[in-house]
């Protein structure tokens, strides 16, 4: 059975908004984040995102795991990316022409010299990219916890998405916590058979092979559940014609105002992007002075 996220009704500004407003705002913020690299713009944007996250007033114990996991993932990704290729960075970062802030001792093998160098531009790229990731994530994380599961499908339908994709999104939203529950049951069932997850050792492929007792049942369970959901939907006439969505959403003036601000904001950001405003990393004088 599909289970839902830990949603609970809260009388907050965020939850009083029409869900569509929140999806549109999320899209506008994503647009803004993707345009800028200048920390002087990215930082306020991220601060706005964190503030909105705070306004959602979700209990920390509910989101703790999601926040910690996503943050750790983002930090690792950003550091690895900055060290390796700086993919997606503005040309000035990849050119590596800014002053070097730190350099490792040189490794000499025969006539080959190598040292790890980190430039001011790469440091600023790292910080900006991390804030861009986290800013977008903190806009998205509250949605499953603060959006009534009853409204998933209706929200997207009333945003103009057709019936079938809207209901698919509804099911997909609920698939994530369902998968988590199935994982829990399977891990328990295999532990009861003497399987110890922390004793899975060996090379990458060996580890994957030894994870089969967990992976296979969860995948198969999802496929079986999927087929049963399709049967249950077909037996009740899903997909045979245009459907009615009983839940009907209504914008309030505050929704219109926020959407208007959001859209103007997104358009301005896009224009700034086209004009290459704040599109490069900012090198603070303090950092440059450190580089000497």
């Amino acid at each position: 059975m599909l289970v839902t996220w830990k949603y609970r009704p809260r009388d907050t500004f965020i939850q009083r908004l029409d869900p569509r407003t929140r999806i549109i705002m999320l899209a506008c913020m994503v647009v803004a984040f993707t345009v800028f690299w200048d920390l002087r713009v990215v930082l306020p944007l991220a601060a706005l995102s964190f503030a909105l996250f705070g306004l959602a007033r979700i209990e920390w114990r509910d989101v703790k795991r999601a926040v910690l996991f996503i943050s750790a993932f983002a930090i690792i990704l950003v550091i690895v990316n900055a060290i390796l290729g700086a993919r997606g960075a503005p040309p000035s970062v990849r050119a590596d022409v800014s002053p070097v802030v730190w350099q490792s001792p040189e490794i000499v093998i025969g006539s080959w010299h190598w040292a790890f160098r980190i430039t001011a531009a790469r440091i600023m790229f790292m910080i900006s990219q991390l804030l861009r990731f986290l800013g977008m994530a903190f806009m998205a994380i509250p949605i499953p916890y603060t959006l009534d599961p009853e409204l998933y499908g209706a929200t997207f339908r009333q945003l103009g998405v057709p019936d079938k994709p809207s209901y698919s999104i509804d099911l997909a939203f609920r698939l994530v916590p369902t998968l988590a529950r199935d994982f829990g049951i399977t891990i328990d069932a295999q532990r009861a058979r003497g399987y110890e997850l922390d004793k899975v050792k060996g090379g990458l492929f060996e580890r994957i092979r030894r994870l089969a007792p967990i992976i296979v049942p969860v995948v198969i369970q999802s496929i079986v559940d999927g087929e049963e959901i399709i049967d249950a939907m077909e037996l009740r006439g899903f997909g045979v014609g245009k459907r009615t969505w009983t839940r009907h959403l209504h914008y309030r003036p505050v929704d219109y105002a926020i959407i208007a601000v959001g859209l103007v904001f997104a358009v301005v950001c896009t224009l700034m992007g086209l004009l290459q405003i704040a599109a490069d990393v900012w090198l603070p004088p303090l950092l440059l002075s450190l580089a000497g």
């Binding site: 059975m1 599909l2 839902t4 599961p149 009853e150 099911l171 609920r174 559940d225 049963e228 959901i229 049967d231 249950a232 939907m233 009740r236 006439g237 899903f238 997909g239 045979v240 014609g241 245009k242 459907r243 009615t244 969505w245 009983t246 839940r247 009907h248």
Partner: peptide, 29 residues
């Protein structure tokens, strides 16, 4: 009615579960 009601229920609330079929028929609200 399928063997396991857990496999049959699609709505997250009882009222949306009951409404699912008539919604698919496109009936008025």
């Amino acid at each position: 009615l399928l063997q396991d009601p857990e496999k049959q229920i699609l709505g997250s609330q009882v009222k949306s579960e009951v409404a699912f079929g008539p919604e698919n028929l496109g009936l008025p609200r």
